[in-house]
Design a protein around this nucleic acid. Structure first.
Length: 105
DNA sequence: ACGGTGACGCTCA
DNA sequence: TTGAGCGCCACCG
């Protein structure tokens, strides 16, 4: 539970907006989002923002993975994230997205 | 204001 | 190929 004033900063807002734009069945990467918002080197901060994602169900943070197709991390647990992605129709083997190159936006 | 931390990314061995 | 280390930027106490 966070305080009521856990306001989002501009950077975070951009991250959430970009993440929300990810269509179902596809995925994006932290670096890709970072580049989209105009900070190609802030991939780390992007993950930081998603971790505190106040728009949990609104923003499909589980559709954001690491560069190369690695699942990456997840606030509720990596396994959980994998499970959700599989439900979206994606295939994951050994924590890596199959055909990642084709499903990445 | 400063320093530490982290759901990353890339290079080197 | 796989593993480990360094660099980056934004957020928090």
């Amino acid at each position: 539970m966070k305080s009521k004033k856990d306001k989002t900063t501009r950077f975070q807002d951009l991250v959430y907006a970009a993440t929300r734009n990810i269509p179902k069945g596809k995925v994006s990467t932290y670096g890709n989002i970072a580049r989209k918002i105009g900070n190609p080197r802030s991939a780390r901060s992007v993950g930081n923002a998603l971790n505190r994602n106040p728009f949990a169900p609104k923003v499909p943070c589980h559709r954001v993975v690491r560069n190369g197709g690695l699942v990456g991390g997840f606030a509720g647990g990596q396994e959980k994230k994998i499970k959700i992605l599989k439900k979206e129709g994606l295939k994951i083997i050994d924590r890596k997205l199959v055909e990642f190159r084709k499903i990445v936006v």
